[in-house]
Computed example of a mutant assay.
Amino acid sequence: MYFKSTFFEDYQLNDKRITLGRTITETDFVVHAGHTGDFFPHHMDEEWCRTQPFGQRIAHGTMIFSIGIGLTASEINPEAFSKGYDRMRFVKPVHIGDTIHSEVTISDKGDSKHPTMGTVTEHVEIINQKGEVVLVCNHLLLVKKKS
């Protein structure tokens, strides 16, 4: 389903959107480990984790990135293309039972090498149920100009 087109000129600095939440489950841990091959005990061994200072399993950072960014994919903009993500940081651990949501703020706009396009940077914060930022990154977009 396509929603209203958003051209480069339509993006306004500091505009913000907030996603719905998603609770992280043990199934998420198992599926992500299977997809990536990352079966490190920090993610998979509950008994070993109890002997560590963090005391419980920690979600894969790449899983939280994938789920958090997936939450932002509620609207399709046929005028924009993702160029990737920059400056990603895993700020705080996420555990089974935590609920995350994403907040996306337009943080920068600029020219592009392509005269019919502009660049837009969305600053993404993934936040847990306590209001703590657990992951941050910048989403880089190439967006078509109206004229």
Rank of each mutant, 00 (worst) to 15 (best):
A80W: 14
Y85Q: 15
I67H: 02
D111E: 09
P93W: 11
G84C: 05
Y85E: 09
G68K: 14
K109D: 00
T72A: 03
V94M: 10
A73V: 13
K109E: 02
K92H: 07
N77T: 11
R87C: 14
G68L: 07
D108R: 11
K83Y: 09
V94D: 06
V91S: 02
K83E: 15
I96W: 00
V94R: 01
I67M: 14
F81V: 10
K109Y: 04
R89M: 13
G84S: 08
P93F: 11
V94G: 12
G110F: 05
I106E: 04
S66D: 04
H95K: 02
D111I: 09
K109A: 02
P78A: 06
T72S: 14
A73L: 10
S82P: 03
K83W: 10
E75K: 06
S102M: 13
Y85T: 15
K109W: 03
E79H: 07
D108V: 00
G97H: 00
I106M: 15
I96A: 01
E103N: 06
A80D: 07
T99C: 14
K92G: 04
R89Q: 03
I67E: 05
G84N: 08
S74E: 04
I67P: 01
E75P: 14
V104F: 02
A80N: 05
R89D: 05
I67Q: 14
D108T: 06
V94A: 04
V91Y: 07
T99Y: 07
D108I: 08
N77G: 13
M88V: 15
I76A: 12
R87H: 13
R87V: 00
H95L: 00
D111G: 08
A80M: 12
K83T: 11
I69R: 00
E103I: 08
G97E: 03
T99P: 09
E75S: 12
T72V: 06
M88P: 03
P93A: 01
D86P: 00
K92A: 12
K92F: 15
G68M: 14
N77L: 10
S107H: 05
I69S: 00
K92T: 02
K92M: 09
E79Q: 13
T99H: 06
D108Y: 03
Y85A: 12
F90V: 15
I100E: 04
P93Y: 08
V94F: 00
S66A: 15
L71V: 10
I76W: 06
M88H: 13
E79I: 12
E75V: 09
I100N: 00
H95Y: 07
S66E: 09
I96K: 06
G70E: 15
D98F: 01
V104Y: 00
S102H: 07
I67C: 03
V104E: 07
T105S: 05
P78R: 08
S82Q: 11
S107F: 06
E79F: 11
